[in-house]
Design a protein around this nucleic acid. Structure first.
Lengths: 180, 180
DNA sequence: GCAGTCAGTTCACTTAACGAACTTAGTATC
DNA sequence: GATACTAAGTTCGTTAAGTGAACTGACTGC
């Protein structure tokens, strides 16, 4: 339904979800990465409503993720190409694919395999630390604010919303069981 | 509105988007990764509707991404913990964060920094080939079906839907400009 | 006894996804 | 030259789902 906008939240996950807009957007991008560049190709491949697709393509174009190129003049016809911003979204799809491949297909393996032409092998995307190139599990990552302080819950909420909201508790009472 | 279900599509991206359900789910997971484990904590941090949050938590629990643990008996109170399936979703959030950090914050830098305790440095998640550990741009990835054949458009559509759908063209007429 | 916490549920409102039909300009076939 | 088809959308009625606000029920702290 989309009334809550995340586009101004200081959180890249929130903004990215706001940018996606709905579940169709990543699938539209998948299609374009796969080679479908035209309206009807994408519409048929996904069985997406034509009005929804038109809206999504308009939005993706306005956001600078796709470019609308005229490939014919009479009548005017357009195709959609990825911009750099769009191509840079590919790793997100790889990360999503890895998770889905692992958890969402039961005993049957993944439906599609990926071959890395660089090394010639069947592979998957893996998320690593860009500094030391080792995997980056949640347990080894600490969040920090740009000023170097750690965002505890209160600080984080303030940072997320600019100021405490009405109704938010001034302090956090209540014992918390930090054990686990 | 969510009537189209992707849960049975043979595509990990589609299934993952179906699993997410809406834009809130990744934010709920972000909160849990961040340390909020209780209903009101998450609700306040995100300003999400209480009924929507209740539905999301129910779904995530049913999907096996969160576990609902009772931490107090009188009255019964619960908190939500990540399962392995849930923790394994973290790389997706890292990939999303990287993209959002780069493209969605204008001149202002990213709002949150991540430190890898393994190597001690400020870092970001990067998606690499799990075999050769090099970055995996779209231009270096070819899709293959498990039988070794390349999924061209026709094959892909057949693979995606099991059989050609009514209204789908038997063959692909029309010249395509494969240049570029 | 009063305020507050926690984990939700209920309800009226509104909006966006859905599906199907329609449009416009041009090409191909018979 | 009528019919069928293509491509890229737009229009429109229906309906499910997100939204916000109020409410509940068991308990705690002052």
């Amino acid at each position: 339904m989309r009334r809550t906008s995340f586009s101004q939240w200081p959180c890249s996950i929130a903004r990215t979800m706001d940018f996606l807009g709905d579940w169709w957007t990543p699938l539209v991008l998948r299609e374009v990465f796969f080679g479908s560049t035209r309206f009807d190709d994408i519409q048929r491949a996904l069985s997406i409503g034509r009005n929804v697709l038109a809206a999504r393509l308009r939005r993706l174009t306005a956001e600078g993720v796709l470019r609308r190129d005229r490939y014919q003049d009479h009548p005017p016809r357009y195709e959609y190409r990825l911009t750099e911003k769009g191509r840079d979204f590919y790793p997100v799809l790889l990360a999503v694919t890895r998770w889905g491949d692992r958890w969402l297909h039961g005993s049957k393996g993944p439906p599609i395999l990926l071959r890395h032409t660089g090394c010639g092998q069947i592979t998957r995307g893996e998320v690593v630390c860009e500094r030391c190139r080792k995997p980056l599990p949640h347990a080894e990552v600490m969040a920090e604010l740009p000023n170097g302080r750690k965002p505890d819950l209160d600080v984080r909420i303030a940072a997320t919303y600019g100021a405490p909201r009405a109704g938010a508790p001034r302090k956090r009472p209540r014992t918390r069981n930090l054990a686990r």
